[in-house]
């Protein structure tokens, strides 16, 4: 269970450009389910995903991941949790140019100090899941958009995360590739991975993969979540 209790996020607090991106949001997201956050641009979806994914800390309120309160942990502990529990798929593919697809997939596991050969084998296996093993040595610049997206997914899976967070994953894909992506999500879901997506793409939130759709507007949850 991921539970968000009364969380607010204020940017630039105390400055003239102070901005409340999230306003006392409460949510309970059960594990092994797929949740889609939906809402207009600027409604705070990315901000909420960042807080859940231990990328940033809320200004007030608490977030629990599997009963562990992550809100007041020092950064190094947050990173540890982020690395071991979450896998991220971003709006842009955010791969590092100039190095191979394989290395890109391995990067999230470097700080764990795992043995190189084991790590490499696992990265190949993840690439294999998406029929990319032939492209492992290719540089990122040489990959097609769809291939790059799949490399990014493989990277999100390298540490065998329990939760996958995807922010607008289909924004840069055409509808065929978007459907293909939802197919992959469906497969992951069937393996018991918890998935949280943010999107305003109907292909995502109307798909039968979504167990629940949470609607947001102006930093508040207006439908689907546990209301405060």
């Amino acid at each position: 269970m991921i539970s968000v209790r009364d969380v607010s996020k204020i940017f630039n607090a105390g400055h003239p450009n102070e901005f409340t991106a999230l306003h006392r949001v409460s949510l309970n997201l059960p594990l092994h389910e797929t949740t889609v956050l939906k809402g207009p641009s600027g409604s705070g979806k990315t901000t909420l995903l960042g807080l859940i994914g231990c990328m940033a800390r809320p200004t007030t309120g608490r977030i629990f991941v599997n009963e562990l309160e992550i809100t007041s942990l020092p950064e190094r502990f947050l990173t540890e949790i982020r690395r071991s529990t979450f896998g991220f798929i971003f709006q842009q593919v955010n791969l590092i140019k100039g190095i191979s697809a394989l290395e890109n997939v391995m990067i999230p596991a470097y700080p764990t100090g795992e043995k190189h050969s084991l790590l490499r084998a696992r990265a190949m296996e993840k690439l294999g899941m998406f029929n990319l093993d032939m492209r492992a040595a290719a540089r990122i610049e040489c990959l097609s958009g769809g291939e790059a997206q799949r490399v990014a997914i493989a990277r999100a899976l390298i540490n065998n995360p329990a939760i996958i967070i995807a922010d607008e994953p289909t924004a840069h894909l055409d509808s065929t590739l978007s459907r293909e992506f939802m197919g992959i999500i469906k497969e992951l879901k069937s393996e018991g991975v918890t998935i949280i997506l943010a999107s305003h793409d109907p292909i995502v939130y109307d798909s039968d993969v979504a167990d629940r759709v949470v609607e947001m507007r102006d930093g508040k949850v207006i439908k689907g979540g546990k209301r405060p």
Binding site: M55, E75, R76, T79, I96, I107, P108, A109, Y110, N159
Partner: peptide
């Protein structure tokens, strides 16, 4: 900008400040 982006990516995917 490229370097900043890279470091951002590294941190987002699980590298810590001390890394």
């Amino acid at each position: 900008a490229e370097e900043r982006r890279e470091i951002g990516i590294l941190k987002a995917v699980g590298w810590e400040t001390s890394d």
